[in-house]
Design a protein around this nucleic acid. Structure first.
Lengths: 151, 151
DNA sequence: ACCACAATGTTAGGCTACCTAACTATGAGC
DNA sequence: GCTCATAGTTAGGTAGCCTAACATTGTGGT
């Protein structure tokens, strides 16, 4: 994000075009993701929280930021997940103010089941692509990851 | 989606792996998108609705499906957008039951301003990529679009 | 043509989630 | 050790989303 702060306000038109396309495609992909959200009784926020915690223990503030909600709202949902036995909360060893949210065994089992189901649905879509298309897609994913980690 | 209904329940492991990676990356990109949502007083749902209507007039039921909410909830938000002068509602000429939501001039102006701002922020991130990486990303976007339109 | 049924939105009422403000507790700097 | 910043939680109010019921228009059978 250092580059962002120091760059000129007028940006390269080509970059803006690609940004526009990227954002539009991302939005369409989210529509797809949302539309396959019907099954299961966990809310979008709760399932996203499980997904985050499945990768690594996270602070409440980080979870709230990723979800685009305020910290008290995140706390509320995390407590519900805790009461459901899906996550646990422990003080961060390196900073006793912070709370690390981790998946319980039960939570990981539940998340894996939900994840497997969605993977199958997406795999069915990927099956309709050609080999070259899948290769291009696979090559692009790390690049998108790179974008998301530059904050 | 025809292919989905007729395919075997056990899917190719490689496809499942790619599906998993795709969903994870998509989720991370959404976090980025959410985190740059602070500015502006429009809710996520309202802004998404504007984005949809900016592409083409859409039915209420379609908007609700894309947002992952029920039709009455979408109606409620659309009415608020209408009262703010951002969208207008008219019966679909081809089906008087349906309602088409379109952007007003004011709505388009507002949406373009918000969109431009976000494009600049994303462009700043894209600027950190190499030319080859941007090319790969650009090539992948139509493929992702293809995935999202196979429903 | 008519009748029953399906599809699309809207209205009404209740519940959940999210927000701001205030508070507690821990870490950081002078 | 005092002051201020940071991380979460609690409390209370507002807004968003849901289900159920209804009005209107399209569709299909007889």
């Amino acid at each position: 994000m250092l580059g962002y702060l120091t760059m000129s306000p007028t940006t390269d038109p080509q970059l803006l075009d690609l940004a526009q396309s990227f954002r539009t495609t991302l939005r369409h992909a989210v529509y797809l993701s949302r539309s396959m959200n019907g099954e299961g009784r966990l809310s979008v926020v709760q399932l996203s929280t499980l997904s985050m915690a499945a990768e690594e223990p996270l602070r409440v503030s980080r979870i709230a930021a990723n979800l685009g909600i305020r910290v008290p709202s995140a706390t509320e949902q995390i407590i519900k997940l805790e009461q459901a036995g899906l996550v646990s909360r422990h003080p961060d060893p390196t900073d006793s103010r912070a709370v690390l949210v981790t998946l319980t065994d039960h939570g990981r089992t539940e998340w894996e089941a939900a994840s497997r189901h969605r993977n199958e649905r997406v795999a069915a879509l990927l099956d309709q692509l050609g080999d070259d298309e899948r290769a291009t897609l696979a090559a692009a994913l790390p690049i998108i990851e790179k974008l998301t980690h530059t904050d």
